[in-house]
Design a protein around this nucleic acid. Structure first.
Length: 417
DNA sequence: AATAATCGCAACCGCACAATC
DNA sequence: AGATTGTGCGGTTGCGATTAT
């Protein structure tokens, strides 16, 4: 049950524009699209989520939205399967759930993606692939569906135009060979990525557990129950006491002494980050030469004239390449700095900490600086570092420039030299 | 002005997995 | 232990809007 309906009502106003858009663009005229008579999916291996015959499909009407909202306001969603009948909707429960989670939920933001959000999506996608729900946990108030759509319709194309394969984040001109000389770095990146991947999964699990726990207390607000993919961004979502993060538990169960190289396995990681990050390590020069020479060059020169907003970019971007090229688990000793921060301040557990913690690390801000400082002590990497750094900078400059091209009012983000 | 092509996004589909019976 | 149910997730589709010809 909603304990505070005020949490819901404002959002109804907030979303009025969405409904207006909906009115104008679609589909009041859309006919009812019930399945054809006799169409019965129950013989297809599993029973349908609900009785489908006569149920409406297609876009939601404002009336339906209101019914769904009113019902959830009063009762919470409870069982989605049972909800449509109780709420007086001719929809299947799945459709109701989707409508709620992707559109009606109070804690979602719609409209333009910010530069920062775009940047985060690109980077997380490079790291995680098409794991939209995991990516969504780092983008507060955005749904996985929205992120997925945005990726498919905008970002993917931009990367393609830049000559970067949006699936692998590699330059289309394969540069594998240029990285062959640095298996160590590849391994380091792989380690980092696996840890991060594992952490994200643990986060999601934690969110689910927290949600379930809250639900079992029966006093939780319905919208909190629905926070599934975005609970990490909620400052109100109750959290269990530390150490509650399975990832951290695993970490503490396998302590490493200072300087000890840890051969870690991500519990569930499914991606090959070594591969994903190769272009970052090795392909930048090609990108400059082949795809964005003038822009990249200009970008480097414009660095001194940034707007305050861009200074943030600059700051965030600064030295991230050092972090990556020199990354080593050695640098962390018994603790992973980019991981420990969010979880040592569990009370907050906000996006600001969690997201910034990771994203900043990813980008190599001051939080990651320690890492890079340690890393650059390795002389053998120092020897080849310059070339790779230039390449990495160029790769990200290219990405960022491309991202930036959609918002002409902003100066391009720039890496320091 | 008419038509075709493309874009953008909400919604649907089917699979996977965990919880429950 | 196996079957059933509920939910989450990622891929895909359908269709109105917009742009190009």
């Amino acid at each position: 049950m909603y304990e505070d309906l005020a949490l819901v009502r404002p959002f109804m106003l907030h979303h009025s524009h969405s409904l207006c858009h909906w009115h104008s663009s679609s589909t009041i005229k859309t006919p009812l699209l019930g399945l054809a008579a006799g169409e019965d999916l129950s013989e297809m291996g599993r029973s349908p989520c609900c009785e489908k015959i006569g149920l409406k499909k297609g876009p939601w009407t404002p009336e339906e939205d209101q019914k769904l909202l009113a019902y959830i306001e009063k009762h919470g969603h409870g069982s989605w399967r049972a909800l449509p009948a109780k709420a007086g909707l001719q929809r299947c429960g799945k459709s109701c759930r989707l409508r709620w989670t992707n559109y009606l939920r109070p804690d979602i933001k719609r409209g333009e993606f910010s530069l920062q959000e775009e940047q985060t999506i690109i980077q997380l996608h490079a790291l995680l692939g098409n794991r939209w729900s995991a990516i969504a946990t780092h983008l507060p108030k955005r749904t996985d569906n929205e992120i997925k759509n945005y990726w498919n319709t905008h970002l993917k194309k931009r990367l393609s135009k830049m000559g970067i394969d949006p699936c692998t984040h590699k330059a289309k001109i394969d540069t594998l060979s240029s990285a062959n000389g640095h298996p160590k770095k590849v391994a380091n990146l792989s380690h980092m990525a696996q840890w991060e991947s594992a952490r994200l999964e643990a986060e999601a699990r934690l969110a689910r557990e927290s949600k379930l726990r809250a639900a079992s207390n029966s006093t939780i607000l319905p919208q909190q129950q629905q926070m599934g993919t975005s609970s990490s961004s909620s400052s109100t979502t109750p959290l269990p006491p530390a150490p509650v993060n399975p990832w951290m538990e695993a970490w503490s169960a396998k302590p490493a002494t200072q300087g000890e190289r840890i051969d870690l396995e991500s519990p569930t990681s499914t991606l090959s980050l070594a591969e994903n990050w190769l272009p970052i390590m090795a392909s930048g020069t090609e990108l400059v030469d082949g795809n964005a020479p003038a822009e990249a060059a200009a970008t480097h020169q414009e660095g001194e004239n940034l707007e305050p907003e861009d200074a943030g970019w600059k700051c965030v971007a600064k030295d991230r390449v050092d972090c990556f090229t020199g990354f080593s688990m050695d640098a962390f000793g018994s603790e992973a700095p980019w991981l420990s921060e969010p979880y040592t301040s569990q009370a907050g557990y906000s996006w600001g900490q969690l997201g910034a913690g990771f994203t900043a690390m990813l980008l190599g801000d001051s939080g990651g600086q320690n890492t890079s400082d340690s890393c650059v002590q390795e002389e053998e990497e120092e020897a080849t570092g310059l070339v790779e750094r230039e390449g990495n900078k160029t790769y990200w400059n290219t990405i960022l420039n491309s991202v930036n091209s959609s918002s002409s009012s902003n100066s391009p983000p720039v890496f320091y030299h």
